[in-house]
């Protein structure tokens, strides 16, 4: 397979969607247990999109979001980005810190730490499920957090992909609480070289 991801077959896309499904399913369960709410998730989108179009998946490049970023090390190095629109992030902080809905108006050190921990837990759950499915062992770095424009935050991941191609393969799942108060986007973006490893592990080289 080439390094440009635009040549994936339908069977390969299905396999990646299944990986997203088991990973995100596990993450959603973890999140649900932490905040004690039901979490709905959509069927993961596996898409190959021009680099410049990725920010449109989360409301456009100037949408204000909170992003938790983790670098994934191991046999298939990747990036994980958990993006929440600002209001969702604030609501999630309200729940985590036992405040009333609407109390959080800006993020202090503790709030950021709580959101990073959520990113950590979701990533761990995701990578665990991925391991059970593929036997590929992956370890996340410590999380980093930024609150800013979606385009600026996504550029961190996109620039690395830009070295190898003009398209990004993203495995993306949307999480929602029942009342729609919290929405989040969980992105797994394998490094270009990692894709072969993942596809080989699930038998669709």
């Amino acid at each position: 397979m080439s390094d440009d991801v635009s040549s994936l077959s339908a069977a390969q896309m299905d396999a990646l969607r299944e990986i997203g499904n088991v990973g995100a399913g596990n993450s959603a369960t973890a999140l649900s247990q932490i905040i004690n709410r039901r979490i709905d998730m959509n069927v993961p989108r596996v898409s190959i999109v021009p680099l410049g179009d990725v920010p449109d998946m989360v409301g456009g490049p100037d949408a204000m979001v909170v992003g938790v970023f983790l670098r994934v090390y191991g046999q298939a190095p990747s990036n994980i980005l958990f993006l929440l629109p600002k209001d969702s992030a604030f609501y999630l902080v309200d729940m985590l810190m036992g405040k009333n809905h609407g109390d959080t108006q800006k993020l202090d050190f503790m709030d950021e730490s709580a959101l990073m921990e959520i990113g950590n837990i979701l990533s761990g759950a995701y990578l665990n499920a991925l391991f059970n499915f593929t036997r590929i062992s992956l370890l996340p770095s410590i999380p980093a957090l930024a609150m800013d424009m979606a385009g600026a935050i996504l550029s961190v991941v996109l620039i690395q992909l830009g070295q190898m191609g003009d398209h990004a393969l993203v495995i993306e799942t949307e999480f929602k609480t029942e009342d729609n108060g919290i929405k989040g986007h969980f992105f797994l973006v394998p490094d270009p070289g990692s894709l072969d490893t993942i596809l080989a592990a699930v038998g669709v080289e």
Binding site: P55, D62, A152, V156, I159
Partner: peptide
Amino acid sequence: PAILISYGLGSC
């Protein structure tokens, strides 16, 4: 007359 605009630059 034109305004050229680019949204959401990070490391770019």
